[in-house]
Nucleic acid binder design. Structure first.
Lengths: 227, 227
DNA sequence: AAAAATCTGTTGCATATACAACATTTTGAT
DNA sequence: ATCAAAATGTTGTATATGCAACAGATTTTT
């Protein structure tokens, strides 16, 4: 199994197996709703999601949960990339649907390779893209959480979701219950604000299908330069 | 000027000038309190802070401000790394103190170099480290903002600050006013919670000097592997 | 098909928070 | 040294939010 746009992009299939060995890489399938890993328990592996859907969830000592990340194919996770030294909360990576994950060793990746393997460079290049993408995702998450009120968080989240789906109408990737955990607010308070948004004719929401009636964010220009 | 642990680490000084040209790289000094850039206006440059201190600030349409990032030498910034498509808010990068910034072109960095310059690989390696570090910082920021109450945000922030300074006592990197913008809460409400934390003997705070009386987070083990 | 579990939607209530306004202290500029 | 600006610290009040508890709808499991 080989994801053409992923970490092994631009690497000839014949080198694939060698690299799998060199970078302690392996692939693993997971059924739905399985604990893939618990932070604190594993070393410097990073995982790249090839198929499926994954959530990184923090469970507080008092039972409250926060959805730290919601990941899809092409996204990556790993303790090394999000070392949050916190002894009182438990951070778990959980499969929402059946998943296929590719692992590589972060230390192997980041170290200067004394053998200067010709493929190392391509791999690092790809990793750079994936990690940049992660930074962008985290930045968007930050944008949502930095909103002061629940209403603003909802508008910000819906606006981003609408932008990403290229449409005014889109499906929520999770239940309203889970959305509250994602926005870090109380569910009932969130339901109240959703009702107000409906009353104000800013959104329409039936089940997980949301339509926004405000302008969604416009993408900034993508400029191209050459090296 | 040349930062040994930065983006040009492990690159011979003699190649330095060539690379500066190849990657459209240049360095620039800024005085304190200057707008370094406004997101939306520039292309795919990323900046690496060599000296000084920088804040990334979002100004809402209603005048409210949020400190999105607080950056120090070795940290990086750039629109490409945090494209938040948002038309109603202004995002500015501002120097807190006199700064020296190194710029390189992100597209140059991320593209596969047809010439396969021997130094490109080393540069990408270094960029990978810097961007990973940024992901970690964003993750920590997320940890703070995902706390539900102002009290929890304060404790989480102080705990992280204490951890990073390897001490129970540390100096805040900015004023209490700015801290409120960083935690995304109202200043007066924050002051009230700080007073409560003092009353509960959990912290002591005189000016910008904070001492925490609860256990700060313990670092997770750093394991080493070889490639 | 029945039962269990989860999700949705709502409400009352106590509390936390935002907002506004103010006095005082500290910092920075001239 | 003087003045202006910013930061600190406080309080009252209206509102938003968290919390608990509940009923009905929907989904999943058995």
């Amino acid at each position: 199994m080989y994801l053409s746009t992923g970490i092994f992009q631009d690497i000839a299939e014949e080198n694939f197996q060698k690299m799998m060995t060199c970078f302690h890489s392996r692939q693993k399938h997971y059924p739905a709703n399985e604990i893939i890993t618990t932070y604190g328990s594993q070393g410097s592996r990073i995982g790249i999601i090839l198929e499926g859907e994954i959530m990184v969830i923090r469970t507080h000592y008092d039972g409250r949960q926060t959805i730290l990340e919601h990941l899809e194919p092409g996204d990556i996770f790993g303790e090394t990339l999000s070392v949050i030294p916190n002894s009182i909360s438990l951070i778990q990576v959980i499969s929402v649907r059946p998943c296929l994950v590719q692992y590589i060793d972060y230390q192997c990746l980041i170290r200067r390779c004394s053998k200067a393997c010709p493929w190392h460079s391509a791999l690092v290049n790809n990793a750079l893209r994936l990690i940049s993408q992660k930074a962008v995702h985290l930045g968007e998450r930050l944008e949502v959480l930095s909103q002061r009120t629940t209403r603003e968080k909802l508008i910000c989240y819906f606006s981003l979701a609408s932008f990403h789906s290229h449409s005014d109408t889109f499906l929520l990737p999770f239940s309203l219950s889970t959305l509250a955990d994602y926005l870090c607010v109380d569910r009932s308070a969130m339901m109240r604000e959703i009702r107000k948004l409906k009353d104000d004719h800013l959104i329409s929401i039936v089940r997980r299908q949301v339509t926004v009636f405000f302008d969604r964010s416009t993408p900034s220009d993508v400029r191209e330069t050459h090296c």
